[in-house]
Simulated assay, not measured.
Amino acid sequence: MEYTQLGRTGLKVSRLVLGTMNFGGQTDEPTSHALMDAALDAGVNFFDTANIYGVSEHKGLTEEVIGSWFAKGGDRRDKVVLATKVYGDMTDDGSPWNVSSWPNHDRLSAVNIRRAVDASLRRLGTDHIDIYQFHHVDRLTPFEEIWQAVDVLIQQGKILYAGSSNFPGYKIAQANETAARGGRLGLGLVSEQCLYNLAERRAEMEVIPAAQEYGLGVIPWSPLHQGLLGGALRKEAEGSGARTKVGRSAAGLADPAVRAKVQAYEDLLEKHGLEPGEVALAWLLTRPGVTGPIVGPRTREQLDSALRAVELELSAELLAALDEIFPGPGPAPEAFAW
């Protein structure tokens, strides 16, 4: 496994991030524990979760599964860089972005941050969270209040770093400029999780440049675009690939223009004898500013495939061909101004 610094911090993390969203839901606890053991054995030390992960009637289940794995001992907790998230409503079974069914039980007020971190620590069975991430932009809470809450958590030893997820570039700048003006204890934001992959490159316009400017590590989520880049058309022909029948992948395959790009992508990689999912991950590892993509395996086979991507070297010729199929938007402001 290769390691890199997380943004401008001194923290060393693996180039793959183990995403745990399926644990406790689509993946039962014994299988989840086995996958975490296998990832750790392979050198993956960066685990990502969120307080809302789990089945709808049991939000927090994923953190509990991770906590029961930590409780097995064997230095599991000491070896893991643990990241979780706060924002979503934990009190009802609706969308995590809905207005809370009870006041102050969602978003990023100092009250909810304090409540949410203590609840996550209990579920995870640990005394601290390495990277505490804001799962979404809170348009109602000023960053001065958010950083006040973060300072308290750092003083208490409950968190070490703060990160963001799904932030636009201007909010990354606003967050870190506010932190710098306030002389805060922490470093401001040190990481940003964003939707970024070959088929969805809009983050290259402003999010990734902002992250690089402020020294944030970029952690792409949905690196296979919900299966679209994992051999979707081949699996469709084989009658497999359930994930490609819903969400972003299904929407893409229903669009003739996107479908043609995916076909060209799979044809190109078949010519080179390469697996589409592994190439999609390897491509992200070549991108400036990227710390490592989040992979969310449900099986050991999927984890092994992701691990192979770290060792995969993509030629300049192949990278150029991928850019022809899935061209990026270009950096801002040139991409939209000139």
Results as ranks from 00 to 15, higher is better:
Glu2Asp: 14
Tyr3Ala: 00
Thr4Phe: 05
Thr9Asn: 07
Leu11Ser: 03
Leu16Asp: 10
Leu16Arg: 11
Val17Asn: 11
Leu18Phe: 03
Leu18Lys: 09
Gly19Ser: 00
Phe23Trp: 10
Phe23Glu: 01
Thr27Tyr: 07
Ser32His: 06
His33Thr: 04
His33Met: 11
Leu35Cys: 04
Ala38His: 09
Ala38Ser: 12
Ala39Gln: 04
Leu40Cys: 11
Ala42Pro: 00
Ala42Glu: 05
Phe46Tyr: 15
Phe47Asn: 01
Ala50Thr: 06
Ala50Arg: 07
Gly60Thr: 14
Gly60Ile: 05
Glu63Val: 08
Glu64Tyr: 05
Gly67Glu: 13
Gly67Asp: 05
Phe70Ile: 07
Ala71Tyr: 04
Gly74Lys: 08
Arg76Cys: 09
Arg77Pro: 02
Asp78Pro: 00
Val80Gly: 06
Leu82Gln: 07
Thr84Gln: 02
Thr84Tyr: 01
Met90Tyr: 07
Thr91Tyr: 00
Asp92Met: 05
Ser95Trp: 03
Ser95Thr: 08
Ser100Arg: 07
Trp102Tyr: 11
Trp102Asn: 07
Pro103Gln: 05
Pro103Trp: 10
His105Ala: 04
Leu108Gly: 02
Ser109Pro: 03
Ala110Arg: 08
Ile113Thr: 10
Arg115Gln: 13
Val117Arg: 12
Val117Asn: 05
Ala119Asn: 05
Ser120Lys: 09
Arg122Pro: 02
Leu124Met: 09
Gly125Tyr: 08
His128Gln: 14
His128Met: 03
Ile129Trp: 09
Asp130Gln: 10
Ile131Arg: 04
Tyr132Arg: 08
His136Gly: 04
Leu140Asp: 15
Pro142Arg: 11
Val152Asn: 00
Ile154Trp: 00
Lys158Tyr: 03
Leu160Gly: 06
Tyr161Thr: 09
Tyr161Pro: 03
Ser164Met: 04
Ser165Asp: 07
Ser165Leu: 07
Phe167Ser: 09
Pro168Ile: 13
Pro168Gln: 15
Gly169Met: 11
Tyr170Thr: 12
Lys171His: 15
Gln174Asp: 09
Asn176Ala: 09
Ala180Asn: 00
Ala180Gly: 00
Gly183Ile: 09
Leu185Asp: 06
Gly186Met: 01
Gly186Lys: 06
Gly186Asp: 01
Leu187Val: 03
Gly188Phe: 01
Leu189Ser: 05
Leu189Phe: 01
Tyr196Gln: 02
Asn197Glu: 04
Leu198Glu: 06
Leu198Ser: 03
Glu200Tyr: 13
Arg202Thr: 11
Glu206Trp: 08
Glu206Ala: 10
Val207Arg: 06
Ala211Ile: 05
Leu216Phe: 11
Val218Met: 01
Pro220Asn: 14
Leu224Asn: 03
His225Gln: 15
Leu228Phe: 04
Leu229Ile: 09
Lys235Phe: 11
Glu236Gln: 15
Glu236Pro: 01
Glu238Lys: 15
Gly241Tyr: 14
Gly241Val: 15
Arg248Tyr: 14
Ala251Gln: 13
Val258Asp: 00
Val262Tyr: 05
Leu268His: 10
His272Val: 11
Glu275Asn: 14
Gly277Asp: 10
Gly277Ile: 12
Glu278Gly: 10
Val279Asn: 04
Leu284Phe: 02
Leu284Val: 02
Thr286Gly: 05
Arg287Asp: 08
Arg287Val: 12
Ile294Ser: 06
Ile294Pro: 03
Gly296Lys: 13
Arg298Met: 10
Glu301Asn: 13
Gln302Cys: 12
Leu303Pro: 00
Asp304Ile: 12
Arg308Trp: 01
Glu311Gln: 15
Glu311Asn: 14
Leu314Cys: 11
Leu318Trp: 02
Asp323Glu: 13
Gly328Asn: 12
Gly330Arg: 13
Phe336Asp: 09
